[in-house]
Design a binder for these strands. Sequence first.
RNA 1: GGUUUCGUGGCCGAGUGGCUAGGCAGCGGUCUGCAAAACCGCGUACAGCGGUUCGAAUCCGCUCGAAACCUCCA
Length: 489
Amino acid sequence: MENKLFVHNTLSRQKELFVPINAPHVGMYVCGPTVYGDAHLGHARPAITFDLVFRYLRHLGYKVRYVRNITDVGHLENDADEGEDKIAKKARLEQLEPMEVVQHFTDRYHAALDKLNVLKPSIEPRASGHIIEQIAMVKKILNAGMGYESQGSVYFDVERYNREHKYGILSGRVIEDLLSNTRELDGQDEKRNSFDFALWKKAQPEHIMRWPSEWSDGFPGWHLECSAMSTKYLGEEFDIHGGGLDLLFPHHESEIAQSTVANHKSPARYWLHNNMITINGQKMGKSLGNFIQLDEFFAGSHAALEKAYSPMTVRFFILQAHYRSPLDFSNEALQASEKGFQRMMKSIATLEKLVPASKSTLDIAALQSKCYEAMNDDLNSPILIAHLFDAVRIINSVHDKKESLTTEDIALLRSTLHTFVFDILGLVPESDPQAGNQVIANLVNIIIDLRREARTNKDWATSDRLRDALAQAGISIKDTKDGATWEME
RNA sequence: GGUUUCGUGGCCGAGUGGCUAGGCAGCGGUCUGCAAAACCGCGUACAGCGGUUCGAAUCCGCUCGAAACCUCCA
């Protein structure tokens, strides 16, 4: 099948045909989390967005090397007293080794993403494991005359860079505008210009995490790790760089500048950015108190949550919006997604029970190509899901004998659904683990059998009593022409 | 203030010059002893005001409102 995948490239702000540099290989780098706290809803969006990209590229037959980093050093805490390393701060607070904190939250992050059925990247490098590469990159930039040392720290000379290249090609920032924005920041006086960014930062005495370098004992600058690690594992020029929209500036802009100086190339061909999640129209943030961790979603243990929402509900909810649109969280929206997801899963189960006919009354092949069209149009998962709900109606109608499909069309419908729902969207059925318990199944079947006898005798009182009692026990009964079916709530 | 976006029916959310997604909720119907499920039908929504056009939710301008970034943050 010939596929023409178009993706929205932030560099051009347009949808562009995706052409890999070295097909069938594709290199993709995505900015991962800073592991100093538990994963929250905001972490889920890029993880799921680029999981979708990863899955679809693989489905199209590309061999993808997906690199997603773990940031475990170097980010400065603005609200901290003197801008100490974020992880060092947390570590001192809890009397733990910094790497112990990193390990803990990395494990928690992985556990949450596993629940969301996010595939593991091909490589998950840590910033702290690539200090040598980062120091080498600082040297390259210094040798090119685009950096300067100041009191043990090294800064990137944005103004000089802007003269030879252009700073702001990704974000649309103009250096003159940036000049007018001055603010108080740690180390400001060390810099030639406020918009210069650190390549190497001298550690203050309270910093626990530090590495030796020719400039000072310190740690690499904010943006360097991604440039160093993407170069190391994907080369000087690779296909896709992804991340949250909040990272567009200054992080990704600075990555481009660093790589352009060090490697004489703009690092990535296609820049993809997922939009943010808001809560009741408001930004999610610690200071606003609407910061919901993923585990709190799964357990329903947050004041803003009316109930628990399963990982697949959260995943489906996120996929029901296009990745470039802001997504507003609310209980009502989550519950709508939950029901829709369950209806979809139920009909996929029904698909296995369809009886073929000699003639098809519906065009399944057309449905399949619509699904591809949706994905090829900048990974439009909400449109894809709309088509999949058409498939849901088809399945249920055929099951109700209102439409008919041939054996071949049923097989095509089945493979289409399995491909798009399970493989590409990465959804998995979430049946209650106890539903598979044979003892429960046997007991329920005994009760249903008793109820069937009562119904044969038109003893509706007993019939309803059994149904109500089972409902109380968490088992719902549905009468069909072919007898009763049951499921665990 | 600057940069970048957005404002769609009760809620969420696609679309982006004519053919008016989808989910959830609601209403009516079919089926059923009843219920549930499923299916069928129903909402004529595009912030406001102008303009361009045969025709605009979709393009342009203005107004109002919102968000992200500019500062650690997905």
